[in-house]
Design a protein around this nucleic acid. Structure first.
Length: 500
DNA sequence: CGAATGTATCCTAGGATACATTCGGTGCACTAGT
């Protein structure tokens, strides 16, 4: 029955593992928490029910680029009742979309946009079939940190009459899964959890004596092993420096960098070049990779400690999507641990500034967030948004109006909240340090234990289990091949362009 | 924490030095001024 719709809408003849159970649970009105490996058809799990349902399905997506991708892809296969609503959407288009919302089956939007009164008003007039939170681990990761609107999804869900909700992700530890359920108020959800183990990715960790040795080791690796590869570093500056350094030190390697401080167009270009095989190595911050659809990445090397085990799994999981043997190396030095720990303190609560800011709140007056944030120019507005969220949660703001409150109590609550956030982050960081240093326990076993999994014996597995990387050597560069003469190439390109 | 940048000081001039401050990752949306 469902198979017939699958064939008619998407042209597939059968479901892949997990899809049918998830779809059936959703259609039967249950909340669903699903963890499926990347590239295994996560989006189909909500797209099919959306097109079968009466009403509109809201998909909350973390990145504008992901939304645009999905919408384009669906439209290209003829499923045109699909739209994205975000800051890219032109004003006129936005109005048109909201007026005709009843005709849309699948609406992609951001957690921030989901808070807009305009959208809510429009949604109140139509039937909402399902609410889907894509990349649901972001609720737990980003929600508590710098995108508080992720924690407000739940209120919207309730305001819309709590339609069945699907939270779907590729990577979430048991703690993160519990948090997702709590934050989205999933009651006795149907859970489909698959292993995060990727048996074709072998695992290695090395601690270098210092930065110089680390750098030298990196050059060796990039020169020796088969590209393409991704190199993750701590900061934007390091991403750029690392790319320049490799380009200089390793012959025949085409590198570039990627981080959140770049122009959108540049980010897109670099990602495209990497996708098309025009680049061998990308040096990047953790901004790189979500939604990346490249199958033949042969290695992922970290030059810093990732923030927690789940992020590490997520990032190394970008290797070997084609199933071919790939490797993941955590290459660090002792001082990187200090750096990682201190980065966490960045969002520490600065009580003095907040006392001043909170003293600006007038009982009985409305608090609207943009102006609240504007008054806090001295502070990061991300923290202001989090504080705004907490003020509502703790009842200091009710119905948009400031209630009477005790300044002393409030500041101590806030102080404790941010302290706890930092402590929680530090606790998630410790296992990563341990992973980098414990050379006695199988690495796969270490990683999987955070997901309550015990790995079956693997071969090849990891450096602890006696692995060497010989089979990953690069196919030799043919030295007789004519060198790449870019001036000639450029001339040829122009000749073609001019129709000669 | 530690690297990088900013500021004060020396004193007939701008470059060296010491000390202080800031910054380090992830993204949405919106506004005001070009």
């Amino acid at each position: 029955m469902l198979e017939r719709h699958l064939q008619a809408l998407f042209g597939f003849t059968s479901f892949r593992q997990g899809q049918k159970e998830i779809i059936e649970a959703l259609i039967n009105g249950a909340d669903v928490l699903a963890m499926l490996p990347t590239g295994r058809g996560k989006s189909l799990c909500y797209q099919l029910p959306a097109f079968l349902a009466n009403g509109v399905t809201i998909v909350v997506s973390p990145l504008l680029a992901l939304m645009e991708d999905q919408v384009q892809q669906l439209k290209s296969i003829g499923l045109k009742q699909t739209a994205a609503l975000n800051s890219f959407t032109e004003k006129a288009e936005r109005r048109r979309l909201l007026r005709n919302l009843a005709r849309v089956k699948l609406l992609y939007t951001s957690p921030e946009m989901l808070q807009s009164r305009e959208l809510l008003a429009a949604l109140a007039k139509v039937k909402v079939a399902y609410i889907v939170v894509d990349e649901a681990h972001c609720v737990s990761y980003w929600g508590h940190d710098f995108r508080a609107d992720y924690l407000r999804i739940c209120d919207i869900k309730q305001a819309l009459g709590s339609p069945p909700c699907l939270a779907i992700t590729a990577t979430a530890t048991k703690e993160v899964r519990a948090d997702i359920k709590k934050q989205l108020d999933l009651r006795t959800p149907f859970e489909h959890i698959e292993s995060v183990n990727r048996s074709n990715i072998v695992l290695l960790a090395e601690e270098a004596a210092d930065q110089a040795q680390k750098q030298q080791r990196l050059v060796e690796m990039v020169a020796t092993y088969q590209a393409p590869g991704i190199i993750y570093v701590q900061s934007r500056a390091q991403a750029e420096a690392c790319s320049a350094y490799l380009a200089q030190e390793v012959k025949h390697v085409r590198t570039s960098f990627y981080h959140g401080g770049m122009e959108n167009a540049d980010r897109l270009l670099v990602q495209q070049q990497f996708m098309n095989g025009q680049l061998d190595v990308i040096c990047a911050t953790n901004a790189f990779g979500m939604g990346l659809n490249k199958t033949d990445v042969r290695y992922v090397i970290h030059l810093h400690y990732p923030l927690d085990i789940a992020s590490y799994i997520q990032e190394i999981g970008r290797a070997g999507r084609d199933g071919a043997l790939s490797f993941a190396l955590l290459l660090t030095a002792r001082e990187d641990r200090v750096q990682a720990k201190n980065l966490l303190k960045k969002n520490d609560f600065t009580a003095d500034e907040w006392v001043w800011a909170l003293s600006q709140l007038k009982v009985g007056e409305p608090l609207d967030f943009p102006s609240f944030e504007n008054r806090l120019l001295a502070m990061q507005s991300d923290q202001a948004r989090t504080v705004g969220y907490l003020l509502e949660k703790w009842g200091v703001i009710k119905g948009g109006l400031v209630q009477s409150f005790s300044m002393a109590k409030l500041t101590s609550l806030l102080h404790r909240h941010f302290k706890e956030q930092i402590a929680a982050k530090q606790n998630r960081l410790l296992p990563v340090f341990h992973y980098g240093r414990d050379d006695q326990t199988c690495r796969r076993q270490q990683l999987l234990s955070y997901f309550d999994e015990v790995p079956a014996p693997h071969n090849p597995c990891c450096d602890v289990c006696g692995l060497t990387l010989d089979s990953f050597k690069r196919t030799p560069v043919n030295v007789n091949e004519a060198p790449f003469l870019w001036e000639e190439e450029l001339k040829a390109v122009f000749a073609v362009a001019e129709g000669k």
